Simulated assay, not measured.
Amino acid sequence: MELEVRHLRALCAIADAGSLHRAARQLGVAQPTLSTQLTRIEQTLGGPLFIRERTGCRPTPLGRTVLGRARPLLADMRTLVREARAAAAGGDSRLRVGSTASRALAGWLRRLRRPGLEPTLQMDVSANALLRRVTDGQLDVAFVHEVEGCPLRVPEGLRLRVLVEREPQFVMLPADHPAAARPVVRLTDLADDRWMVDPTVDGEWDGVHRMLRAVGLNPRVLHGDYHTAASLVATGEVVTVCQPSSQSRPDTAVRRLHGDPLGVRLLLAARTRDELDAVFPALEEAYWEVARQSTAYRECLEGPVPLPGASFPPGARTATDRAEFVPAR
């Protein structure tokens, strides 16, 4: 038996689904058929690829090795088919961009768009989900953030480049809040406020909870998306963490938190270094453009107290922000 693309697709489906039953349903085949196919693949490769348990399947060391090679091969095959179809149709080449929320997106997409290249966008609150889509060939690149203390689950084979090593998270509060009169807010100034957090954002609740507990706060917390949070901040119902590039409005104020207790790392992910090189400069320019537009963030970047990992002049390139790395496992 020789391995074929369909065999690799079946292995990845089993690994992602965590069980033969769910993988068979996703692939549209009967479970006995998939089980027989897996047995033949294992015989061909010389060892078991999955440990079968009552709760499902998990890869063996050999299985992890095979999956690490199978995923980029499948991704390359999808890319080949997509590009061939585009060329045959005489249409524009598509650059599939994924991202968590960022004010830099509009400027990034504008810079990427050119004759013959049309970027598309998939948004997701889950950075881990976007990284999986890059690995599986559903996206070409993904711009994500990693909450400190909550490492992302980076699939094997992905290339990562750091845009900002540590972007401090600010706080959004009602414009008439007493603490809004100061440029820097202490968490203890918000002891009587309710907070709103989006628990679907990978690592967000853990990071905010850890930040608040570190100063002895255990406030009331509402769960919801950040668009809703901004509306509730405007009416004085809650306060919430926000990106430093967020801008104050007549009814809300964006302020730096004293000591910068919560930070995120901004990362760009792709399958190859060439893909990173092709889109990173545009992302870098777009990010620092919106950073300069935010009064609170600009004052931090240009102020006397440097921001670790984010204090270099806008547009400058340092060894840190240009570096690629392989995350610890």
Rank of each mutant, 00 (worst) to 15 (best):
I41C: 07
I41R: 08
T44K: 12
L45D: 11
L45W: 06
L45M: 09
G46R: 13
G47I: 08
P48A: 15
L49F: 06
F50I: 06
F50W: 12
F50M: 08
F50G: 03
E53S: 12
E53Q: 15
R54L: 15
T55N: 15
T55C: 12
G56V: 06
G56W: 13
C57Q: 10
R58W: 03
R58E: 06
T60V: 09
P61R: 08
G63F: 11
R64D: 07
L67C: 02
L67T: 01
G68M: 00
R69T: 09
A70P: 09
A70R: 09
P72R: 04
L74I: 09
L74Y: 06
L74P: 11
A75Q: 05
M77D: 15
T79D: 14
T79M: 09
L80A: 15
L80F: 14
V81D: 00
V81I: 12
V81M: 01
V81F: 01
R82A: 12
R82V: 07
R85Q: 14
A86R: 03
A86G: 08
A87L: 09
A87Q: 11
A88Y: 02
A88M: 05
A89C: 06
A89M: 08
G90M: 08
G90F: 08
G91I: 07
S93E: 13
S93Y: 10
R96C: 05
S99H: 04
S99V: 03
T100H: 00
T100C: 08
A101N: 07
S102F: 00
R103K: 06
A104S: 09
A104D: 02
L105A: 00
L105Q: 00
A106C: 04
A106D: 15
A106S: 14
G107N: 00
L109G: 04
R110I: 05
R110C: 06
R110Q: 15
R111Y: 10
L112Q: 04
R113A: 14
R114P: 11
R114I: 07
R114W: 07
R114Y: 11
P115I: 04
G116M: 03
L117K: 02
P119S: 02
L121H: 07
Q122D: 14
Q122Y: 10
M123K: 07
V125F: 03
S126I: 06
N128Q: 06
R132A: 01
R133W: 07
T135G: 13
D136C: 10
